[in-house]
Computed example of a mutant assay.
Amino acid sequence: MNRFGLRTSNPAFSRYFWGKNRRYSAKMSLSGIILKSLLMLCLVAITATYTWSIFFEGESVKWHTSIGMFVAIVASLFISFKHNLAKYLLPIYALAKGFFLGGISAYAHKRFPGLPLQAVFVTMVTFFVMLLLFKTKIIVVTKQFRAVVISASISIFTVYMIAWILSFFGINLSFIWGTSWYAIAFNIIAAIVASLSLLLDFDYINRQVGKAPKEKEWLATWGFLITLIWLYIEVLRLLKKLAIRS
Protein backbone atom coordinates (compact mmCIF):
# COMPACT_ATOMS: atom_id res chain seq x y z
CA MET A 1 0.00 0.00 0.00
CA ASN A 2 1.37 3.38 -0.94
CA ARG A 3 1.00 5.80 1.95
CA PHE A 4 3.72 8.25 1.08
CA GLY A 5 5.95 7.95 -2.04
CA LEU A 6 9.80 8.51 -2.36
CA ARG A 7 13.25 7.31 -1.27
CA THR A 8 15.69 8.96 1.10
CA SER A 9 19.25 10.21 1.12
CA ASN A 10 19.67 9.03 4.71
CA PRO A 11 22.09 6.10 5.06
CA ALA A 12 19.56 4.56 7.44
CA PHE A 13 17.21 4.02 4.52
CA SER A 14 19.62 2.52 1.99
CA ARG A 15 18.98 -0.96 0.61
CA TYR A 16 21.83 -2.21 2.80
CA PHE A 17 19.62 -1.86 5.85
CA TRP A 18 16.46 -3.35 4.35
CA GLY A 19 17.14 -6.99 3.63
CA LYS A 20 14.18 -8.76 2.05
CA ASN A 21 13.70 -11.20 4.88
CA ARG A 22 10.24 -12.73 4.69
CA ARG A 23 10.65 -14.83 7.84
CA TYR A 24 9.42 -12.07 10.13
CA SER A 25 5.71 -12.04 10.87
CA ALA A 26 5.67 -8.56 12.42
CA LYS A 27 6.21 -5.83 9.85
CA MET A 28 7.15 -2.20 10.02
CA SER A 29 4.20 0.08 10.76
CA LEU A 30 3.74 3.81 10.44
CA SER A 31 2.38 4.02 13.98
CA GLY A 32 5.49 2.25 15.28
CA ILE A 33 7.78 4.76 13.59
CA ILE A 34 5.73 7.70 14.87
CA LEU A 35 5.78 6.34 18.43
CA LYS A 36 9.53 5.74 18.37
CA SER A 37 10.15 9.16 16.82
CA LEU A 38 8.17 10.88 19.56
CA LEU A 39 10.03 8.90 22.22
CA MET A 40 13.42 9.84 20.78
CA LEU A 41 12.41 13.50 20.48
CA CYS A 42 11.48 13.40 24.17
CA LEU A 43 14.98 12.14 24.97
CA VAL A 44 16.44 14.94 22.86
CA ALA A 45 14.30 17.45 24.75
CA ILE A 46 15.40 16.12 28.16
CA THR A 47 19.14 16.63 27.65
CA ALA A 48 18.59 19.82 25.64
CA THR A 49 16.56 21.29 28.51
CA TYR A 50 19.22 20.26 31.02
CA THR A 51 22.02 21.87 29.00
CA TRP A 52 19.91 24.97 28.47
CA SER A 53 19.19 25.32 32.21
CA ILE A 54 22.78 24.95 33.43
CA PHE A 55 23.93 27.43 30.76
CA PHE A 56 21.65 30.12 32.15
CA GLU A 57 22.75 29.22 35.66
CA GLY A 58 26.20 30.42 34.65
CA GLU A 59 27.91 27.11 33.89
CA SER A 60 29.91 26.50 30.73
CA VAL A 61 28.31 24.03 28.31
CA LYS A 62 31.17 23.94 25.84
CA TRP A 63 32.04 20.35 26.69
CA HIS A 64 28.39 19.30 26.79
CA THR A 65 27.97 20.62 23.27
CA SER A 66 31.23 19.26 21.84
CA ILE A 67 31.04 15.83 23.47
CA GLY A 68 27.36 15.55 22.61
CA MET A 69 28.09 16.11 18.94
CA PHE A 70 31.01 13.67 19.01
CA VAL A 71 29.01 10.90 20.71
CA ALA A 72 26.12 11.43 18.27
CA ILE A 73 28.50 11.05 15.31
CA VAL A 74 30.07 7.91 16.75
CA ALA A 75 26.66 6.39 17.51
CA SER A 76 25.52 7.11 13.95
CA LEU A 77 28.64 5.48 12.51
CA PHE A 78 28.05 2.34 14.57
CA ILE A 79 24.40 2.24 13.50
CA SER A 80 25.46 2.63 9.87
CA PHE A 81 27.62 -0.48 9.99
CA LYS A 82 25.83 -2.45 12.72
CA HIS A 83 22.19 -1.75 11.98
CA ASN A 84 21.05 -4.47 14.41
CA LEU A 85 22.32 -2.21 17.23
CA ALA A 86 20.00 0.65 16.26
CA LYS A 87 17.51 -0.09 19.04
CA TYR A 88 20.29 0.21 21.62
CA LEU A 89 22.28 3.10 20.13
CA LEU A 90 19.43 5.33 19.00
CA PRO A 91 18.56 6.44 22.57
CA ILE A 92 22.24 7.26 23.11
CA TYR A 93 22.23 9.23 19.84
CA ALA A 94 19.11 11.14 20.90
CA LEU A 95 20.46 12.00 24.36
CA ALA A 96 23.83 13.09 22.93
CA LYS A 97 22.19 15.18 20.24
CA GLY A 98 20.10 16.84 22.92
CA PHE A 99 23.23 18.06 24.71
CA PHE A 100 24.49 19.51 21.44
CA LEU A 101 21.20 21.15 20.49
CA GLY A 102 20.69 22.50 24.00
CA GLY A 103 24.11 24.12 23.91
CA ILE A 104 23.85 25.83 20.53
CA SER A 105 20.27 26.88 21.22
CA ALA A 106 21.22 28.43 24.57
CA TYR A 107 24.04 30.41 22.96
CA ALA A 108 21.67 31.64 20.26
CA HIS A 109 18.96 32.58 22.79
CA LYS A 110 21.40 34.51 24.96
CA ARG A 111 22.38 36.74 22.06
CA PHE A 112 19.01 36.82 20.33
CA PRO A 113 16.19 36.02 22.77
CA GLY A 114 13.49 33.83 21.26
CA LEU A 115 15.54 32.77 18.24
CA PRO A 116 15.53 29.01 19.04
CA LEU A 117 11.74 29.08 19.43
CA GLN A 118 11.46 30.73 16.02
CA ALA A 119 13.71 28.01 14.58
CA VAL A 120 11.52 25.29 16.08
CA PHE A 121 8.42 26.95 14.60
CA VAL A 122 9.97 27.26 11.13
CA THR A 123 11.18 23.65 11.30
CA MET A 124 7.72 22.32 12.19
CA VAL A 125 6.02 24.45 9.53
CA THR A 126 8.52 23.18 6.96
CA PHE A 127 7.88 19.59 8.07
CA PHE A 128 4.11 19.88 7.57
CA VAL A 129 4.52 21.74 4.27
CA MET A 130 6.79 18.98 2.97
CA LEU A 131 4.34 16.35 4.17
CA LEU A 132 1.48 18.16 2.41
CA LEU A 133 3.49 18.44 -0.81
CA PHE A 134 4.27 14.76 -0.57
CA LYS A 135 0.73 13.62 0.18
CA THR A 136 -0.81 15.74 -2.58
CA LYS A 137 1.94 14.67 -4.99
CA ILE A 138 2.67 18.27 -5.91
CA ILE A 139 6.31 17.19 -5.80
CA VAL A 140 6.94 13.80 -7.32
CA VAL A 141 10.36 12.34 -6.67
CA THR A 142 11.94 10.78 -9.72
CA LYS A 143 15.27 8.97 -9.92
CA GLN A 144 16.88 12.20 -11.12
CA PHE A 145 15.36 14.17 -8.25
CA ARG A 146 16.54 11.58 -5.77
CA ALA A 147 20.05 11.55 -7.21
CA VAL A 148 20.31 15.35 -6.99
CA VAL A 149 19.17 15.47 -3.35
CA ILE A 150 21.45 12.61 -2.32
CA SER A 151 24.45 14.18 -4.07
CA ALA A 152 23.74 17.59 -2.54
CA SER A 153 23.36 16.09 0.94
CA ILE A 154 26.65 14.19 0.71
CA SER A 155 28.44 17.30 -0.59
CA ILE A 156 27.10 19.49 2.22
CA PHE A 157 27.99 16.99 4.94
CA THR A 158 31.47 16.59 3.45
CA VAL A 159 32.02 20.35 3.51
CA TYR A 160 30.82 20.52 7.12
CA MET A 161 33.13 17.70 8.20
CA ILE A 162 36.12 19.33 6.52
CA ALA A 163 35.25 22.69 8.11
CA TRP A 164 34.83 21.04 11.53
CA ILE A 165 38.22 19.31 11.30
CA LEU A 166 39.95 22.52 10.12
CA SER A 167 38.44 24.43 13.05
CA PHE A 168 40.64 22.37 15.42
CA PHE A 169 43.66 23.93 13.68
CA GLY A 170 42.29 27.45 13.97
CA ILE A 171 41.14 27.58 10.35
CA ASN A 172 37.62 28.91 9.92
CA LEU A 173 35.89 28.81 6.56
CA SER A 174 34.10 32.15 6.36
CA PHE A 175 31.63 31.00 3.71
CA ILE A 176 30.24 28.54 6.27
CA TRP A 177 30.67 30.11 9.71
CA GLY A 178 30.67 33.76 8.68
CA THR A 179 27.76 36.13 8.15
CA SER A 180 28.50 37.21 4.60
CA TRP A 181 25.86 36.82 1.92
CA TYR A 182 27.86 33.85 0.61
CA ALA A 183 27.57 32.18 4.03
CA ILE A 184 23.85 32.97 4.16
CA ALA A 185 23.36 31.58 0.65
CA PHE A 186 25.13 28.37 1.70
CA ASN A 187 22.82 28.10 4.71
CA ILE A 188 19.74 28.61 2.55
CA ILE A 189 20.86 25.91 0.13
CA ALA A 190 21.58 23.51 3.01
CA ALA A 191 18.15 24.21 4.55
CA ILE A 192 16.43 23.57 1.22
CA VAL A 193 18.29 20.28 0.77
CA ALA A 194 17.37 19.24 4.32
CA SER A 195 13.72 20.03 3.55
CA LEU A 196 13.79 17.96 0.38
CA SER A 197 15.42 15.13 2.30
CA LEU A 198 12.26 14.95 4.39
CA LEU A 199 10.35 14.12 1.21
CA LEU A 200 12.74 11.29 0.49
CA ASP A 201 12.38 9.98 4.03
CA PHE A 202 8.59 10.04 3.80
CA ASP A 203 8.69 8.09 0.57
CA TYR A 204 11.09 5.42 1.67
CA ILE A 205 9.18 4.85 4.89
CA ASN A 206 6.05 4.55 2.79
CA ARG A 207 7.67 1.95 0.57
CA GLN A 208 8.82 -0.15 3.51
CA VAL A 209 5.73 0.02 5.75
CA GLY A 210 4.13 -3.43 5.84
CA LYS A 211 7.15 -4.99 4.13
CA ALA A 212 10.30 -4.53 6.22
CA PRO A 213 10.73 -6.36 9.57
CA LYS A 214 9.33 -4.63 12.66
CA GLU A 215 12.79 -4.04 14.12
CA LYS A 216 13.69 -1.84 11.15
CA GLU A 217 11.45 0.84 12.63
CA TRP A 218 14.45 1.85 14.73
CA LEU A 219 16.48 2.52 11.59
CA ALA A 220 13.61 4.44 10.05
CA THR A 221 13.36 6.55 13.20
CA TRP A 222 17.10 7.17 13.19
CA GLY A 223 17.07 8.36 9.60
CA PHE A 224 14.07 10.61 10.14
CA LEU A 225 15.62 12.08 13.30
CA ILE A 226 18.84 12.90 11.45
CA THR A 227 16.98 14.90 8.81
CA LEU A 228 14.69 16.73 11.24
CA ILE A 229 17.56 17.78 13.51
CA TRP A 230 19.65 18.79 10.52
CA LEU A 231 16.82 21.02 9.31
CA TYR A 232 16.48 22.67 12.74
CA ILE A 233 20.22 23.37 12.93
CA GLU A 234 20.25 24.94 9.46
CA VAL A 235 17.23 27.10 10.25
CA LEU A 236 18.74 28.22 13.58
CA ARG A 237 22.05 29.13 11.96
CA LEU A 238 20.31 30.96 9.13
CA LEU A 239 18.11 33.00 11.48
CA LYS A 240 21.14 33.84 13.63
CA LYS A 241 23.13 35.10 10.64
CA LEU A 242 20.20 37.20 9.43
CA ALA A 243 19.76 38.62 12.95
CA ILE A 244 23.44 39.59 13.11
CA ARG A 245 23.23 41.40 9.78
CA SER A 246 20.02 43.22 10.63
Rank of each mutant, 00 (worst) to 15 (best):
Y107V: 05
I33S: 12
V129R: 04
C42P: 00
A94E: 07
F56W: 06
F4I: 02
A220Q: 02
S197K: 01
N10H: 14
L6D: 02
V74N: 08
Y50Q: 15
G98Y: 15
F112A: 09
W52P: 15
G223A: 04
E215L: 06
L236H: 09
K27E: 02
R22C: 05
T179F: 08
W18Q: 10
S60V: 03
L131W: 09
V193I: 14
H109T: 01
F4E: 03
A86G: 02
S180D: 14
F100E: 12
S31D: 13
Q118M: 15
K87N: 11
A96Q: 06
I150C: 01
I54Y: 02
A96W: 05
V120R: 00
E57N: 13
S76W: 06
M124P: 06
L133C: 11
K110H: 09
E234I: 07
L77A: 14
A194M: 05
M161G: 15
S153L: 12
A212Y: 09
E217C: 09
K36D: 09
V71D: 03
A12H: 01
L6A: 03
A190K: 10
V120E: 01
I189C: 11
A45H: 05
A86W: 06
S174N: 12
L43R: 05
Y107N: 15
K110P: 08
H64L: 14
A96T: 03
M1Y: 05
S9K: 09
V193R: 08
Y204E: 00
D201P: 00
R237S: 12
P11D: 05
A147C: 02
D203H: 00
V74Q: 11
G103F: 06
G178S: 14
H109P: 00
S29T: 15
P11H: 07
V140G: 03
L231V: 10
S167H: 13
Y50S: 11
R22T: 13
L43S: 03
L77W: 08
A119E: 08
V141L: 05
L196E: 01
K214I: 05
L43G: 06
V71K: 06
Y93W: 10
M40K: 04
R3P: 05
A147Q: 04
T126F: 00
F70P: 05
I138W: 01
K36C: 08
L238K: 08
L200G: 01
M130V: 04
L39T: 04
I67C: 07
I205D: 00
I92S: 02
M28N: 10
K97R: 15
E57I: 06
V149Y: 02
K241S: 05
W63Y: 12
G170C: 10
L117A: 12
F134Y: 11
A147Y: 02
S53Q: 12
V148F: 04
G114Q: 06
Y88Q: 12
G19F: 02
V122T: 05
H109R: 08
E59C: 03
T221F: 00
F13H: 14
A106Y: 09
Y50G: 15
Y24G: 11
S151M: 14
L133P: 06
A183P: 09
I162W: 09
A48F: 10
A94H: 10
S25M: 08
Q144N: 08
N2C: 01
M1N: 13
I150K: 01
F81P: 11
R237D: 13
H64T: 15
Y93Q: 03
F127M: 10
I34C: 14
T65S: 14
L196C: 07
E215I: 14
